[in-house]
């Protein structure tokens, strides 16, 4: 053992990295188990319904009544961003509903990798809804590969095609307020969801319905019923409950002890 330690084999943990490693391992196991259970159709805890979710169907319904399109946009991030992945789950649902209601769906994209995936999801959704003929590839659009040119292009879509519902779901930056403001000007109902803290206030202030932070992942899993997303959200929730428990215990210890052993362990 001494030899191994000297050779650095046991020194795989950088000082202070052991606790984060154990936490990550536990988290991975929980998420993995939940995904597998969801896939196998076994019982896993249910995700509660969020207020903004009813608004989704309401928005699509309104667009149908008015005979105007629904517009969806995943923000500026690429495929590696979890917010974009949440958008994919939601897009499938919105596309399917649009196909069922025979409402036109326009999906904007900024990232060249997100674009083909979006197109594939919409095509699949139309197929599942039994309306492959209604799918128009030109309505899944690549607008521009830069923040403000893309924003300008979307404003053009707003003005020309006048969507009755705009769904902004993903990672947004300074363009968020411009998009929300212009959606209001054309009288569209707008739903905004982001986990970018700095843009949440703009969505909360400007959108008819807003989903903030973790809610967007939960909502996406809820509507898509996709096992990987659902399992991940449930696993994450358990991790969150674990963190909650740690904070409670740690705080109690902080009141009664001078050296908090929990803090010491987590710091290792």
């Amino acid at each position: 053992m001494t030899f191994l330690a000297q050779a650095g084999v046991l020194g795989i943990f950088v000082e202070g990295n052991f606790a984060p490693f154990v936490m990550m391992l536990l988290f991975t196991i929980i998420v993995y188990v939940m995904i597998q259970r969801a896939r196998a159709g076994l019982k896993i805890p249910e995700i509660r319904k969020l207020a903004g979710l009813d608004a989704l169907d309401e928005a699509i319904g309104r667009a149908t009544e008015m005979g105007r399109p629904v517009f969806t946009f995943p923000g500026l991030a690429g495929v590696t961003n979890p917010q974009t992945l949440a958008y994919f789950g939601l897009l499938g649902h919105v596309a399917k509903r649009s196909a069922q209601y025979d409402t036109r769906l326009i999906a904007g994209n900024v990232d060249p990798y997100v674009y083909p995936i979006s197109e594939e999801i919409v095509r699949q959704a139309y197929l599942e809804a039994g309306r492959p003929d209604a799918f128009n590839p030109d309505d899944v659009r690549f607008v521009a590969y830069d923040q403000f040119p893309a924003t300008a292009a979307i404003l053009g879509i707003y003005r020309r095609e006048r969507p009755a519902a705009t769904i902004l779901y993903g990672a947004f930056w300074a363009e968020s307020m411009i998009l929300v403001e212009n959606a209001a000007q054309i009288g569209a109902i707008s739903i905004g969801a982001t986990a970018n803290t700095h843009q949440m206030p703009f969505f909360v202030a400007g959108c008819d319905y807003a989903l903030i932070g973790e809610e967007m992942y939960a909502a996406s899993a809820y509507v898509s019923k996709e096992p990987v997303l659902t399992g991940t959200v449930v696993g994450q929730d358990w991790a969150r409950i674990g963190v909650f428990a740690l904070i409670i215990v740690g705080t109690i210890l902080a009141q009664v002890q001078t050296t908090n052993w929990l803090k010491t362990i987590l710091g290792k």
């Binding site: 249910e46 509660r48 973790e214 929730d237 358990w238 969150r240 409950i241 909650f244 904070i247």
Partner: peptide, 10 residues
Amino acid sequence: LVYFFFTISR
């Protein structure tokens, strides 16, 4: 933190 619990019923 409790606001973001999704699997515990409200």
